[in-house]
């Protein structure tokens, strides 16, 4: 009995301490999306990752860098263009994608700065040469690097989906939107100083410098999927989730074997324990 109280109190304390810090968040509840990768056994949907990559390439990459991802990563196990027949470095799709990009390099003979076609080992080039250039071109806000974007936002892919599918026009009456900004109910922030509508609650959310990025048929999917805003939003969110967590499939697969081993291991050790302690008063 005492032990149980003690254990319960301890557990309650730990749970309370481990509770995520959510107070102070004034953003709107994120849109609900079903993801192929959400369960402990869930994996990425490769076709979706390919569609998402297309959105990145044709839409996002105009402003957002992806500086931790190399072209070869696209052909990694679990990646958008993984093909078990090839290593990531000689995957023909990956090579063709890399070739389309111009990579800054130094000519080894003349020492001149040159541009050459990419190879799988190269990283995605940044759209801007430095943070100052990015800031100047985007009204003072640096578009964040997308390599870890899904991991760096509370809510992950659901957050990205909510933000990119919001159309930015539904700003509540009485809210003054600063020049070059857009209202976004899912952004964390505080818009109270821009809100004058007596008797109404200050709207949730904040301002974002990114204009609504998606429109229907912004891209033409190779697999014939209809490119609605929702479809595009889901695909880019899934792609960015993969970019943040490329080893997820490997992690979950290995995790399953480890869990099975640990349960069996505990069982065997428990049997050994019971045998040793049999008939021993304690």
């Amino acid at each position: 009995m005492l032990r149980k109280i003690f254990a319960a109190a301890t557990l309650a304390g730990l749970v309370a301490m481990a509770a995520p810090a959510v107070a102070g968040s004034t953003r709107e509840t994120l849109k609900e999306v079903h993801w192929s990768f959400e369960s402990p056994f869930g994996q990425y949907d490769q076709a979706q990752l390919q569609r998402g990559f297309k959105i990145y390439k044709e839409v996002c990459s105009a402003c957002h860098s992806l500086n931790q991802i190399a072209f070869r990563n696209l052909g990694d196990k679990g990646g958008p263009f993984w093909n078990p027949k090839y290593t990531p470095n000689d995957n023909p799709v990956v090579k063709a994608i890399a070739k389309d990009y111009q990579i800054a390099d130094i000519d080894s003979d003349s020492g001149d700065a040159i541009k050459r076609p990419g190879v799988p080992a190269d990283y995605f080039p940044s759209p801007f040469s430095n943070a100052a250039a990015a800031r100047a071109a985007n009204g003072g806000a640096v578009p964040p690097d997308m390599s870890l974007l899904a991991a760096a936002r509370e809510g992950g892919p659901a957050y990205i989906y909510s933000v990119v599918t919001g159309d930015g026009t539904d700003a509540p009456a009485g809210l003054t939107i600063p020049d070059g900004k857009y209202y976004d109910p899912w952004m964390s922030g505080d818009v109270s100083s821009y809100f004058k509508n007596p008797g109404h609650k200050v709207p949730k959310g904040g301002f974002i410098a990114m204009p609504p990025p998606l429109i229907a048929d912004r891209v033409t999917y190779d697999d014939g999927t209809k490119a609605t805003i929702e479809q595009e939003g889901k695909d880019i969110s899934a792609f960015l989730q993969w970019a943040s967590d490329p080893h997820m499939e490997e992690r979950k697969t290995l995790g399953l074997s480890v869990m099975i081993f640990l349960f069996l291991f505990s069982g065997v050790i428990y049997a050994s324990y019971r045998t040793i302690w049999r008939n021993v008063g304690h």
Binding site: A271, T275, N279, V280, G281
Partner: peptide, 21 residues
């Protein structure tokens, strides 16, 4: 080492458990 032995157990089975562990 048993403080209160209450009858023999099958030593072969026990050995197996410890070896498995």
């Amino acid at each position: 080492a048993q403080a209160h032995p209450d009858g023999p157990a099958d030593p072969g089975r026990r050995d197996f458990i410890h070896i498995a562990a």
